[in-house]
Design a protein around this nucleic acid. Sequence first.
DNA 1: TTGTATGCGTTATCAC
DNA 2: GTGATAACGCATACAA
Lengths: 339, 339
Amino acid sequence: MQTPKLEDVARHAGVSTATVSRVLNSPLRVSERTRLKVEKSVAELGYTPNFIGRALASNRTNTIGAIIPTMENSIFAHAIQALEETLFSQGVTLLIATSQYSKQREEDQLRVLVSRGVDGIVLVGADRSQNIYDLLRARAIPYVVMWMSSQDKQHVTIGFNNEVAAHSVVHRVYDAGHRRIAMLAGITEGNDRAAQRVVGAQRACQELGLPPLNVVETAYTLEAGKKAALSLLSGPDRPTAVICGNDVIAAGTIAAAAETELNVPRDVSVTGFDDTDLASILSPPLTTMRIPHLRMGRAAGEVVMSWINSGERPENIEYETKWVERGSLAPPVNVDTVS
Amino acid sequence: MQTPKLEDVARHAGVSTATVSRVLNSPLRVSERTRLKVEKSVAELGYTPNFIGRALASNRTNTIGAIIPTMENSIFAHAIQALEETLFSQGVTLLIATSQYSKQREEDQLRVLVSRGVDGIVLVGADRSQNIYDLLRARAIPYVVMWMSSQDKQHVTIGFNNEVAAHSVVHRVYDAGHRRIAMLAGITEGNDRAAQRVVGAQRACQELGLPPLNVVETAYTLEAGKKAALSLLSGPDRPTAVICGNDVIAAGTIAAAAETELNVPRDVSVTGFDDTDLASILSPPLTTMRIPHLRMGRAAGEVVMSWINSGERPENIEYETKWVERGSLAPPVNVDTVS
DNA sequence: TTGTATGCGTTATCAC
DNA sequence: GTGATAACGCATACAA
């Protein structure tokens, strides 16, 4: 017998398959005596329940699906790790998929997850095709949205206010004395977090009486960030401070500055967003906005599981972000353009 | 009808469920006319095959499982991403699990993967309980081992020679003029890659007539690496060069040097291992040994799939590593201890 | 080429 | 408290 099945255990223990199943799933509904008998057989045969059979019969997979943009950004890798830990401790498996920041790819991945019968889903951001939400609703699959917050109850969100956070960054930079500020944002198409950060930053500029921010969008990669920063720093009217959409772009900007022989923060200040491991390692260490990535990962797991288990739609959770000063932001040397 | 099933499609198209199944799985064995008819019904009903039912009937899950130590090290995150891409293009789903460098945890995770019926498995390194290999063999599950190479045919390995690579690092450092060298290795318990690197480094020292390397083991994290480096750099007989087990430890070492007011590479040289994104961003940029992480990820996917599809055990693959000079390694200022 | 019927491993609804 | 037995959704051997 290659792989013992329920039937083998039942025969070995001299009971029915139903009883074995009960011992495994609701041991309370079986007599002490038979329970021990069955457990002994299970051990002796080295029986392991077959996930597929169980899933088909119970319509439950003990699996949660998650779709993140990419694992190449450590902020997501860490959040996913926290999510996985949380689920693992509840005996639930996490199925991870990546969208590569592509709406189409995300939709494909979601269909895969759904067809695999995941019990719940964790997503990042809310900017996606209505099809997806229709599908989720039709199948009654609980899902939560990380990385953003919202007032309305359209989705269960677990995250922080990107707009407020970016707004705050501009104020910090302004308070440091900067007036000629540029922003290296992530690609906003299909990325509401990036878009909200731009909105928040622009709003702050307006409030502060600054001219509209020069916003350059770039992919969330080191190389792309560096390239964008190079053109920004070598162009006319060089900004005294560059606000970056995340730490990776900020790292690219610092690299670009080094290449252009500009000193950070003396010649140009740089701020990040996320507070990844990178931030403290960069030279100079990065002043950045810390986001609660581990808390989001853990909470997403707890919330989606409680939804599944209780059937009650959970409340939204909003976390604060935290400004972390390190050294890449300093007053500009020549405050020559106070408008 | 919440979720259409095969039967619904069959009824809608006026054929049997067997025919619908054939259209989906072997369209060549069905007439053009009925095929089109069925495909139309599939589209109209928005039918998606139920993975669970399919898996139970076919004993195939189109799923590959992978267990990596952690996703928090970008080298694994990137490799896994490459693996996932490769599998995705073949319509195969990747189930990712992490062991946190724990043998027990890895064994647990493996049982989960097996019970979920994965068609194949991708592992990192070969140092694990024999139980695991027995289980895999008993179930006849193809598996490949990444991140190492081997002459024998005990496992299908896809990787590089850790010992040779570390051996080479020592030679490079020696050639730069260093004689007082220390090594900050990863924890070797349960990690054969880390252990092999130590062996290779020690062998090189012996060959070169150097005293046995002062090897300090540390967890593969920034903080742990920094802490270990601090004690190493502040102790007596400070080494002129520190060889690190990976780039993360090297980053910690550079941070420790900065804290100790030691200049890298003038006061102390530092080398890494992996060549992650980190390497080029550090200050100074890290001289390190590049490993073929993306190629390993891609190859692992291709090899395990070809094994599954063809039934033929594939050959081992060995890649070269590449020495990347950046700036953290330089001749020592005072060659005062040539033994 | 197509249909019928059976089985995949488990859970769950009944009776007993 | 326990045992038959019918699902669960699909693939496939066998018949036609």
